[in-house]
Design a protein around this nucleic acid. Sequence first.
RNA 1: GGCCCCAUCGUCUAGUCAGGUCCAGGACACCAGGUUUUCAUCCUGGGAACAGGGGUUCGAAUCCCCUUGGGGUCACCA
Length: 562
Amino acid sequence: MKNQTTTNTGTGTRFAPSPSGDLHVGGARTALFCWAFARGRQGRFVLRIEDTDRKRSSGAAALGFLEDLDWLGMSWDEGPELDGSTRGEHGPYFQSQRLELYQKHLADLLDRDLAYHAFDTAEELDDKRRAARAAKQPYRYDRAGLEVPRDERIARAEAGEPHVVRFRTPDRPVVITDAVLGEATLPEGEVDDFVIRKADGYPTYHFAVVVDDALMECTHVLRAQEHFNNTAKHLLLQEALGFPHPVYGHLSLIMNPDGSKMSKRDKDKAVRAAVKQAGIEAPPEGSIAPEVFNAWIADKKAQLENTDLVRLAEALDVELPEINVKDFRRSGYLPEVLCNFLALNGWSPGNDLEKFDNAFLAEHFDLSRVQKTPARFDRDKLRAFNLDAIQSMTPREFRDKVHAHGEQFHPEFLNRLSDEQFDMLAEASRERSKTLDELYQGNRWLVVEDGDLSWPISKGVRKAMLKGEPRGLDLLEQLLPTLAGLEAFTAVALEGTITAWADEHCEGNLGKIAQPLRIAATGGTVSPPVFDTLAMLGRESFVARANGCIRALHEHAATMNT
RNA sequence: GGCCCCAUCGUCUAGUCAGGUCCAGGACACCAGGUUUUCAUCCUGGGAACAGGGGUUCGAAUCCCCUUGGGGUCACCA
């Protein structure tokens, strides 16, 4: 993260999110490409916050994305810092703090009659828009504001009458040259006299972005494809202001597997679907406030606050789809894997190579290989990449990473384990974990009190414990005293003893006794290798659980017979 | 709906710009078999695409046109 402005060769890129919530994966990919492009050319990578919408900007959310970029391994040369100060020579980096800069260029446009004050009310414009929509016509501003003579416009604006400032768009076609999409010509009339300063005095996106990209010396603008048509406006503005045109590259969107746009809304949708499926009319006890729930259900367009969403999802046992970088982090994906995978959605090195790191990306990334079509985000493939990365870690590396993940997301789990237990668990899970979170999701049995463990009679439990001759339950009872009296309760000792016992009592079929032992220890049929499982638990816990299990299953068998 | 852009296995993609080496390669997913004390991992094998139709050419996944399909956009949001 050192300042590289002194060594730059002229290439400059920027990532400029609006401060609404956490960093979306699509935004992360845009940032990654901007970062890689600058780094590969010894250029500057600048961060800027586009907070010109006063309604949507909140101070707290503004800098959340810095943490995400940092986690992903991207460094920036200039931008706002986590502590709120800034660094770099092109600041400030909050657009809301650059108002006088915009004002200066706007006055220039006004003076040269390339922009004008317009006094249409929001209602008037709304009506016109609705009419156009009803007539199935595209809406374009009709230049009603221009009917007021220039002197009068200026006088009324100076008198304080509410107004916006519009750009006087030249009547001619605009050619957009895009490094990814090629060349496109927008016919004359396609771009209308768009607003460049809102009634509240703030610039619109179009104006701020053009001024800032020029002032911050951005030579290359890589951004989401939703801005492609806007580029015409920006090109025109640059010409009017005498700014150079940066090279544009528009990146296709990232879609869900079903082809829909991948958005924060998907989380809300997932929970709504679960509510509908469960057929409930009130929030589950202890999840969220009934008023909140009712208001949310009543309005299909409403979105639940994130904390409420998470709570409700937990209560309904639905998994929220990962959308933001933070979601993927919580789910236990490695940052380098996420970057790798994100880069692969829309870019490839041009051969069969798929696994690469950010350094490789920075060295090889180029605009000509960026995909034009939207990519569907395939979490299965991401998981496969993550597994691969985990498997290539050293035991120590995995232990440390999975522990750090637990400290952040499952501290209560960690608190209940000794270091020794954790190390055993980590090693037993290392080559089978697709994410850092799996260890915590799949081993709850290890952190419940012995007295709180139960043995639900699932199909698997019934088969392993109560069916066949002899029943698994009987074998467990026979073997238990031997294990209880074992000198060392270690995985190695247990393996020796149990295998030998299986040779004698199960015709060498270890499976006959392994499942009963696992069930006794965990209450379920899935766990790490059984000897590790028992050793992790320790003799005392295991014996207590086994006795509890035997008792519970006998009771169950008895009630079934009567 | 107007305007703009795009189109290779289910998915991400290589090959397209400079037409032949492509009856189209890789990865994930899927299917079958194997290893395994559960789950997972792991090993082996398999099916799977140039959207459709016209051209141009000795020759087209590659160039042109049309159709179809997909995406973007049409705010005092960015």
